[in-house]
Design a protein around this nucleic acid. Structure first.
Length: 289
DNA sequence: AAAAGTGCCAACCGCTTGTAA
DNA sequence: ATTACAAGCGGTTGGCACTTT
């Protein structure tokens, strides 16, 4: 007995979201808050499945999402958290302010698991791989390097240091200087974000990320001057950000700036003092709360 | 210049979990 | 206790952009 689909698929849009759809979704959530995803599309005038709306909001449109490359600190934290929690992406994302589970999952699958493998570590178990496997990986790496070197010398190309590939996300986004816990929602009365304090506590934000874009449209009709800024850049990509005034309302504290470091220290402390797995498990358990 | 290959990421799918009736 | 619905989660896929042949 199969489960009924979350909504009728007939006539619904699929695939990439258009800027217009984004705008409709943002405006609706701005006015009515998150939740009721099933009925949301109809009310918001969207020809989308509620699930799709939720996903778009959670992974892309939420104002507290941090964009841009994963920093080395975050990188390290993801690896360590993964070794404790496994593929529980939402839990891992919960410890990385502004990052989504989808983003971390993708990053893991495309970068980190491969890197661990090349370093001789099993990405699933985080244990050292047996020598033969490591040798195989190294061998493959060498042969690839050889090929590349040959090509380079043949083409007489001046070798430049390898630069990391940077993928600029399509919608340019300016994040707030603080991050909100996952259960944040709009205050329906004031159209502002309200923050439900997290039991995990101490999750501050990271530094402010400033991206300059030519704003052409400001979607914001609340008199408090709070809410979304939504615009299209030159390529008509949708861009948005949360309240510009957030920085003044919630000044970035040192705690905010050092939240990752703190978390990391907290984790290292546990590693130092609690050598046995039981203690590690309890740390992992604490993340589940 | 064009075709083929590869990497990446947004979005989808289906299962699980939580909750209200 | 059971059922139905909503939301959340993790695995997978489709398609675009870039690189290689």
């Amino acid at each position: 007995m199969g489960r009924a689909p979350c909504c009728s698929k007939v006539g619904l849009h699929r695939g990439p979201w258009t800027s217009r759809e984004d705008t409709l979704l943002i405006k609706y959530i701005q006015a009515h808050g998150e939740g009721h995803w099933r009925s949301l599309p109809k009310k918001a005038g969207l020809l989308r499945c509620g699930k799709s709306c939720r996903l778009r909001w959670m992974n892309y449109l939420r104002p507290d999402i941090k964009r841009g490359n994963i920093t080395p600190d975050e990188d390290d934290l993801i690896i360590r958290l993964h070794s404790l929690l496994g593929n529980r992406w939402s839990l891992i994302a919960g410890r990385l302010p502004g990052r989504t589970d989808n983003e971390i999952k993708n990053y893991w699958n495309t970068h980190l698991s491969k890197r661990l493998l090349s370093e001789g570590t099993d990405p699933n178990t985080h244990k050292k791989l047996s020598d033969p496997i490591v040798q195989q990986v190294k061998k493959r790496k060498n042969s690839i390097n050889k090929k590349q070197n040959n090509k380079i010398s043949k083409a007489k190309v001046v070798h430049e240091p390898e630069m990391p590939k940077i993928h600029l996300p399509k919608p340019i986004r300016v994040t707030t200087s603080f991050s909100l816990p996952r259960n944040d929602s709009f205050d329906q009365c004031t159209n502002t974000f309200s923050t439900v304090s997290s039991s995990q506590g101490g999750e501050g934000g990271l530094g402010t990320e400033v991206v300059q874009v030519p704003w052409s449209e400001y979607i914001n009709d609340d008199e408090n001057g709070t809410g979304f800024l939504a615009a299209y850049n030159d390529d008509h990509d949708f861009v948005n950000r949360s309240d510009f005034d957030c920085q003044s309302h919630v000044p970035a504290t040192e705690d905010d700036d050092n939240s990752l470091e703190k978390l990391y220290e907290e984790y290292l402390q546990l590693l130092k003092t609690n050598e046995d797995q039981v203690q590690l498990d309890s740390f992992a358990e604490s993340l589940l709360i």
